[in-house]
Amino acid sequence: MVVELDVRSQKIRLEEDGIVRAKLKPHVDVDLTDAEEAVSAIASLCQGVRRPVLVDITEVKSMTRECRVYFAGPETAKVEAAAALLIRSPLTKAIGNFFMGLNKPLFPTRLFTSESEAIGWLSSFLT
């Protein structure tokens, strides 16, 4: 059964393949509160199991530094086994690169422009 949660900045869904999909809403400026809400939502969906997460940031407008730090930090690492960031525009690519280069997530993270490739990579983290 697919379960989906809708928080302010994104929609989060746990698919039957065991991979979490997080789709950030268009033109949202994501801040720390949004990050905490999203991670909490993922945790409630996964119920103690660390799962790979596909994060679609193709339509995000901006992310605050505190938000990026939280997404890369230990609270997120408790619930995410790996993260694939789906990007498309130069803007989202820049955000993704900053996230990877400066915030240095505590779990495996990669940028993808293809969702299928991202899912393929995330599948290797399913237990």
Binding site: R65, L91, A94
Partner: peptide, 9 residues
């Protein structure tokens, strides 16, 4: 826009 985002970040 990407450059602006980078500068802001």
């Amino acid at each position: 826009d990407a450059v602006v985002a980078c500068v802001n970040m």
